[in-house]
């Protein structure tokens, strides 16, 4: 009897230590990356790192501006493309579609979420790049290779479909039926009810889902690297090539050891991604948890 209780307590303590250490892992990543990036701060100010546009590691020039702009532009394009499509889809699934459609679409989204980034990249090269080169870009500029921030944004948009559709339709399903019924019985059409009642109520959840999708797009590496040209200059139009931060890390890891401060600069890029995505995720998860809690309580 005593032994059983002893065993229970022993296991409890072991699991407590495991749980606490795994939670502190979040901070460990931040600290670890910071320590590796720290040498960079001795010679460069944070301001010069963010605003500098020259990237020449061998000359000790580390300007992140082009890469930050590259990341921001692909992410922005991805959201602009994906958000309207996914909102409409999620509304349709939650409010209009028969359960059969939902039963097909949601598993489809799960499969889409499971497709590896490199496959998205291959698809981007064979499907999106030629379309951008032949049909889309010529409408706006004289020549484009097809490997542009626009292409990267489109591929990213498809990659964030699943996260947007599944979270937004979940959020919509938490809206109380009474609210909708009240609006419908006052004579509003279904769309008017959605526009003025449902979406208003679901707004925090939709914002949270969008922020999650943004942070997903922010950190995506290989798929974007394969289709957006990797030109270390801040893109001046959406049909220019760009060079997002994650691609910078992935492309240069092999050679960084031979040049002083190069590895610190790449670790700084990783730290930057980590901090931004950490904050974005934290905020949106807290919002989503609150919604879920309100609903279940």
């Amino acid at each position: 009897m005593n032994f059983r209780i002893f065993k229970d307590k022993l296991i409890a303590n072991a699991m407590l230590i495991l749980s606490i250490s795994s939670v502190s892992f979040v901070f460990l990543i931040g600290i670890g990356l910071y320590l590796r990036a720290a040498p960079l701060f001795e010679e460069h100010t944070l301001f010069s790192l963010f605003s500098g546009s020259n990237w020449a590691p061998s000359k000790n020039q580390f300007g992140f501006y082009p890469f930050i702009m590259g990341t921001l532009s692909v992410t922005l394009i991805a959201i602009v493309v994906a958000l309207p499509l996914c909102l409409l889809t999620a509304i349709y699934l939650a409010e209009y579609a028969k359960s059969g459609v939902r039963k097909v679409m949601l598993p489809l989204m799960n499969i889409l979420a499971g497709i590896p980034p490199v496959i998205y990249g291959v698809w981007g090269i064979f499907f999106v790049v030629p379309i951008v080169r032949e049909y889309v870009a010529p409408q706006f500029t004289e020549y484009s290779s097809g490997y542009t921030v626009f292409t990267g944004g489109v591929v990213l948009a498809v990659m964030i479909f699943p996260i947007l559709v599944s979270i937004v339709s979940e959020v919509l399903s938490t809206i109380p039926k009474e609210l909708k019924d009240a609006s419908l019985s006052l004579g509003a059409t279904k769309w008017e009810t959605i526009k003025k009642v449902v979406l208003k109520r679901a707004l925090p959840g939709i914002v949270a889902a969008t922020v999650l999708a943004v942070s997903r797009a922010f950190g995506e590496t290989i798929a974007v690297l394969m289709v957006c040209g990797n030109v270390p200059v801040a893109p001046s139009s959406v049909f220019d090539g760009g060079y997002p931060l994650p691609a910078l890390i992935a492309n240069n890891f092999g050679e960084m050891m031979s040049i002083p401060l190069y590895d610190s600069a790449l670790m700084f890029a990783a730290l930057l991604l980590f901090v931004i995505i950490f904050l974005f995720n934290l905020i949106s998860r807290i919002i989503l948890n609150r919604i879920e809690h309100k609903y279940s309580a």
Binding site: V26, G219, F274, I277, F280, R285, N289
Partner: peptide, 10 residues
Amino acid sequence: DVLFGIPSIV
């Protein structure tokens, strides 16, 4: 939940 969102490159 937060760790789940951290990209694999990090």
